[in-house]
Amino acid sequence: MIFENPIGALLLFLRETGNTFYMVFVSTLIAIIIGMPIGIILVITEKGGIKENLKLNKVLGTIVNIGRSFPFAILIIALMPFTRLIIGTSIGTTATIVPLSIAAAPFVARVIESSIKEVDKGIIEAAIAMGSTPWEIIIKVLIPEAMSSIILGITLTIINLIGYSAMAGLVGGGGLGNIAIQYGYYRYDFSLMIVTIILLIILVQLIQWIGNSIAKKMNKK
């Protein structure tokens, strides 16, 4: 197709790269909105945390683990009724955002949790000794101090989601994965598949590079 209709191919790639971006970034955003509070709660409720609550910690931890143990392909299918309920359809680019977000949220929760756990206990203690409320500690100490590490974790989430979104393309989602299945698999047009792969590689490299740069800039250690 690249050779018979280069403009059409270019438009196709532009459109589907745009779709991939759209799916990945919207679902990353949703995953952060869901996962971030969970990650924070996991840290502050653990033993010795600033709002110790072992029961809540255990319950949330279990939910996160269950979420993480679902293979993504199964999650897409299992969530189809739910996706149809809120989006109106279970196929297409927008519909894919639902399983992508749900798959990424527990991952983000763990990323945030482990980033915040790295914050020096002494710094938290100093904040307590200065009379901070738990909320002030979260907003002014834990998140800013963990920011560099959180950015790296979110970069990893985005990269994982690019992979997942390609997988979603196989079952009716849009994006670059969809080109691979539509043209590479059904029509044996391997040139398109190779371009898709190259595009995905570039995309991943680019995002890793941006993530690393931001994290480096944030890291004042």
Binding site: G122, I123, E125, A126, A129, M130, E145, M147, M218, K220
Partner: peptide, 12 residues
Amino acid sequence: MIFQHFNLLNSR
């Protein structure tokens, strides 16, 4: 309060 390892906020 001041501490042996200072405990300053690194991001500030």
